[in-house]
């Protein structure tokens, strides 16, 4: 479960997992223990997703011909 909820999971994957959890809890007769586990996992995904959304700075990099990445400082209003 640690890998499913870890902090560096992409937002997309997290939201997809959250929907899976919701769908499974809403449709299947999952055993109580499993339902509790899913609930907990879902709560962690909600929290983590919110944490990601709260990061306010767009990160902009430039991919150079050498294949290296260089942070790009640009005006973005």
């Amino acid at each position: 479960m640690a890998d499913k909820t870890s902090g560096d999971l992409p937002l997309e994957a997290r939201l997809r997992r959250l929907e899976e959890i919701l769908a499974s809890m809403e449709s299947d007769e999952v055993p109580l223990e499993e339902a509790l586990r899913l609930f907990e996992e879902g709560v962690v995904h909600v929290r983590e997703a919110e944490r990601v959304l709260a990061s306010a700075e767009l990160r902009v990099e430039e991919l150079l011909a050498s294949g290296r990445l260089r942070p790009l400082d640009v005006q973005k209003d």
């Binding site: 939201l15 959250l18 809890m25 809403e26 609930f39 709560v43 997703a49 919110e50 959304l53």
Partner: peptide, 16 residues
């Protein structure tokens, strides 16, 4: 996305 997240805890709780 926030709207979806806002609804999620409620849905989780109701499902439980």
């Amino acid at each position: 996305v926030l709207e979806m997240l806002r609804r999620a805890p409620g849905r989780l709780g109701r499902a439980l």
